[in-house]
């Protein structure tokens, strides 16, 4: 199957500072892709090159077989949602959503119908007469989403669209974005530095590290088979195992260690509990194994009280779950 969005050897330098160092990826139509990485790794720069706001130093970008690397942003037929909403303050919600349609020359009655359809889609029917300043941040961002998808763009680009919102809305809106994306089957590139956010809504994740693509894969692959030390430590929690008994660069996820033996476990460690963190559904124990701190996650249970500080415990794990961290 031919790739729908293809980025080839993409390089971007600002002066002598190379911030994107030869990135390649290809995705299929309808995929939800997250660009994930720490601050300053070049995620926004890649997105802005796809949008056409930055000119690549070298490399190519293709959408649906068309080379768009050197097109102007207004010729690319893409939709974008910005971190700061960026609704047009002088236009009503309806006119904001209709902006791209009007530019494209759609007749007024069709525009009105499309705006109504979009407002229903984002759960804000009847809001077309409002102005942006009369709405909450979450509502504004949903309008920005509607404005981006109303002209049926080939790609939807989102640059940390949720980071200005508070935690509850962030979670509900990301689920809404994912639902709308799946509904419309629109190929989406989502930039975030929040690994939980990326894991929860993506089909595939591109993990970036200092301008390089470190790993690309489904959330399941990225989490369970991280290909570099950076990916393993950046995505999810990780315990480095004591070198004396496991050798160097061995690590394991907290939820793969238990206090009781399981059918697959074949290795044990003994340690003393140094801290107990009750997180609701999960109880996180910090265990001191001859000087190496190991975190383990256990499910909360009604019947049993969690272990106490100072208790000596035996940890059970399976050798196959141990990750070897490369460079």
């Amino acid at each position: 199957m031919a790739a729908f969005l293809e980025v080839q050897n993409l390089v971007k330098s600002f002066g002598t500072n190379t911030v994107v160092k030869g990135v390649n990826f290809a995705f299929e139509k309808g995929e939800f892709i997250s660009l994930l990485g720490p601050s300053g790794c070049g995620k926004t720069t890649i997105l802005r090159m796809i949008a056409g706001f930055e000119r690549p130093t070298s490399g190519a970008i293709r959408v649906d077989g068309d080379e768009i690397t050197h097109l102007k942003p207004n010729q690319r037929k893409l939709g974008m949602v910005f971190q700061a909403y960026a609704l047009f303050p002088n236009l009503t919600v309806g006119d904001n959503i209709a902006f791209g349609l009007k530019i494209a020359g759609m007749p007024a009655d069709q525009r009105r119908a499309r705006v109504e359809e979009m407002l229903r889609l984002i759960g804000l029917p009847g809001f077309e007469k409002r102005f942006p300043y009369e709405m909450s941040g979450g509502q504004q961002q949903r309008v920005a989403l509607a404005r981006a998808i109303a002209p049926k763009p080939r790609l939807l680009l989102l640059d940390e669209p949720l980071s200005a919102l508070d935690a509850k809305i962030r979670v509900s809106l990301r689920e809404e974005i994912r639902a709308i994306q799946q509904d419309l089957g629109i190929t989406t590139v989502f930039v975030t530095h929040d690994q939980e956010e990326a894991m929860s809504i993506s089909d595939r994740i591109v993990v970036m590290n200092a301008g390089n693509l470190d790993q690309m894969g489904s959330p399941h692959e990225i989490y369970n088979r991280p290909s570099t030390r950076f990916v393993a430590t950046f995505v999810g929690q990780l315990n480095t195992l004591p070198e004396a008994s496991f050798g160097p660069n061995r690590a394991i996820r907290p939820e793969l260690i238990s206090l009781a033996p399981r059918p697959e476990t074949d290795t044990t460690l003994t340690g003393t509990i140094s801290d107990v963190g009750f997180l609701g559904s999960v109880v996180r124990l910090r265990v001191d194994v001859s000087g190496t701190p190991i975190n383990i996650d256990t499910f909360n249970s009604h019947a049993t009280t969690p272990p106490q500080r100072g208790d000596t415990v035996t940890l059970h794990l399976a050798a196959k779950d141990v990750l070897t961290l490369g460079a």
Partner: peptide
């Protein structure tokens, strides 16, 4: 924020 507003309008085709 003329920078972001300009980009938002550009990507919409203006």
């Amino acid at each position: 924020d003329i920078g972001t507003l300009t980009e938002a309008a550009q990507i919409a085709g203006a």
